[in-house]
Structures are given as C-alpha cells and as structure tokens.
Simulated assay, not measured.
Amino acid sequence: MSDARARLLSLLSLLQTPRLWPGSELAERLGVSGRTVRRDIDRLRELGYPVHAEQGGWGGYRLTAGTAMPPLLLEDDEAVAVAIGLRTAAAQAVAGVDEAAVRAMGKLLQVLPARLRRRVDTLATSTVAHPFSLAAEPVDPDALVVAAATIANHERLRFRYRDEGRHVEPRALVTAGRRWYLLAFDLDRDDWRTFRLDRVTDVAATGARATTRDVPGGDAAAFLASRAMQMAPAYPADVVIHAPAAAVVDRLGGPPPGTLTDQPDGTCRWLAPPDTGEWHALRLASIGLPFEVTGPAELVAHLRSTAALFQTATSGAGRSGAGSP
C-alpha cells in the first residue's frame, strides 16, 4: 500500500508538468506496466484530479483544469521559487495581487520544512528593492493570467492597446521597474512589439495556433531593454561636482561611465556618455554631493522638472508634522 501511495504521488507530480504524457512514458518513468498506469489514473480521477486522456498514436494523459484546485506537489527548489515569487508579487503593481500574495505566502510558509524556510528567509533578507523603482499603474490580473496562458499554450492573442485593436503572437512577459510588459510579434505590423500591460484592455485568447518564433537576440529582457533605450532620448552630460574625483568614486563604489577629471579649484568635471535624463539624474542623486550641470539643456530641464516634483511632494511636510512631539 505504501508503494502504491508513493507511486500515485510520483504520477501526480509528473502530470503536473504541463504537457501530454504518453502512457508508455509514464509506465517507464514509474517502472510499472501500462495497465497499472491506467489503474492509477482512475484512482487520481476518483480523488478529484481531472486527468484528460487523448486517444491515438499521438495520445496520452494531461492534467486539466477542474471545478476546484487540487493540491500541488512541489520539489524543494520549486517551493522556494514560489515563496520568493509570492514575496515579490506582494510588492508588484498588479491589482489585488498584493493581498492575495500575502495570504498565499502564509499558507505556503506554514507547511514549508524548516530547511526551506531558512532558504526563503535568507534570499528575502539579502534582496533589497531599488529605491528609485518606478511607480506604475496597476495591471489587471486577469489580463496577466490570459497573456501568460497564451504564451504557455502557443496561442494568438487579441486586445486593445491605447484604444487600438491588436492581434499578436505573445512570446514573453517581462517585468522592468514595477511595470509588466508583453513581448509579442504583431501580426498586423509584421514586427516585434512591446506592450505595457497596464495599458492593455479587452484581452482575449483566440485559440489560433501561434507560429514558433525566436526573440531577436534570444533574450526577451535584453530585447525589451534595447527597445526602451532606442525609444528614450539620450544625450551626454557635462557636470562639475564640488568635490575631488576620489570622493565621487568612493560614493559610487567605482568610477562612473565617461571621464572624471580633477580641476585646480578642488572640484572635478564629469563628462558622461549619452544616456537618458532619468539615468543621469539617478547617478547624480546617488553621488550625494553638490554639483552644477554645464549641459546639455535637456538635462537641465529634466532636473528642474524633477526638482519641482520633489518640492511639491514635500512642501507640506513641515506643516503636517508641526504638532507632533
């Protein structure tokens, strides 16, 4: 009986990998006959697991969606990955997901063995959110789920993007900052496109099979980053920092990109290569030393608008805290 129970758990673990499993392959993996596999499949169905069978030479077994969610079997590394993912999801900009992630995290931690909880805690405490992460509009979780499902099932997808209908073959979901992006091949434009999911509405899987295409360069995240850099205006920067170059290097933990030259008056001049205004501003803020921007005008304008934004955000801070002890 104990062997039968262990075999059922092994069979269930195999079926929870999303693919069609031929009966002969399951029998080989479990070291039993095809008849035993069929009998075990019937037992799983009696326990409420919706196992679908496809007949024919290319047939097999697949675990499908049912009316209720059955228990999941996770390997140690899978459980750790899910736990870390839930911690991350609790801070992501997906509508309603933060609270749900916290609840799911509590359930998972309750049953995790101590050795795995230590791994999760170690990873969580050694990971720090970037202080300059972008705020984002919340993403519809249903849109996220549908997009992910069409990627997994190699289906085409239709949606509206900025009130325009799009028909695509989705390839990957990518997170950047606190935003979600869909990388897809746009069938109407015959080219690769990236879409911010917080701007996507009326998402629907078409059921039509998507063509297998390789992402340019083979890396979805790198492709998204290159597209973002191409779309964002970039320009060099000429900055005088009121401190020696050594102090700047010490603050940054290394030399910044470009050239950093000491001046006779005790300042240093930083000639930065072309980059976006956001990245120039981020580096200057992280230095934490007085500076003057010599050029270009685009960077001066960007810093002024950023300064005005922060000034507005903090203008009432003193008054609101005046009565506090």
Rank of each mutant, 00 (worst) to 15 (best):
T36A: 15
L44R: 09
R29C: 07
P50E: 04
G48D: 12
D76K: 00
L73I: 10
G57P: 09
L26Y: 01
V32I: 04
T67M: 11
G66C: 09
V80D: 04
P70T: 02
W58N: 15
E75T: 00
R43Y: 14
S33E: 14
T36Y: 12
L74A: 07
A53S: 10
G60R: 02
E75Q: 08
D40G: 11
D40V: 15
G59D: 09
L73K: 06
A27K: 08
V32E: 10
T64L: 09
D76T: 03
L73C: 07
L74V: 00
W58C: 02
D77N: 11
V51A: 12
A79D: 02
R45D: 08
T64W: 15
G66D: 13
G34A: 07
L30R: 06
P50C: 07
V32N: 09
G31C: 05
W58K: 03
T67Y: 15
M69Y: 09
R62V: 14
R62I: 15
P70N: 11
E46A: 10
E54G: 02
E78I: 01
R45P: 03
L30G: 10
G57Y: 10
G59R: 07
G48T: 04
P70G: 11
G60D: 05
V32R: 00
Q55Y: 04
E75C: 00
I41G: 06
G31K: 03
V51D: 12
M69F: 13
P71D: 08
T36K: 14
A53I: 12
V32K: 03
R43G: 13
L44W: 12
I41A: 03
Q55F: 02
L44A: 10
R35Y: 01
T64M: 13
D76F: 00
G66S: 13
L47K: 01
V80K: 09
H52K: 11
A81L: 15
A65Y: 05
A79W: 01
L26C: 07
G56S: 02
V80A: 06
G59K: 06
S33L: 05
E54Q: 06
L47I: 07
W58H: 14
G31M: 05
L26E: 02
G56L: 00
Q55T: 13
G60A: 02
G56D: 00
P50W: 15
L74R: 02
G66P: 07
G60C: 05
P70K: 13
L47N: 05
L30E: 08
R29E: 08
L44T: 09
Y49L: 05
A68V: 14
T67N: 11
T64R: 15
E54T: 09
D42I: 05
D77E: 06
Y49H: 14
G66A: 02
R35P: 02
D42P: 08
D42F: 06
L44K: 08
E78M: 00
G56T: 01
P50I: 04
P50V: 03
D40K: 10
V32C: 13
A81D: 14
P71Y: 09
E28P: 03
T64F: 12
A65I: 03
G48R: 09
H52R: 10
L44M: 08
E75W: 02
G57N: 08
L26A: 04
G60K: 10
H52L: 04
Y49P: 07
A81H: 11
T36C: 11
A53E: 07
D40Q: 13
E75M: 01
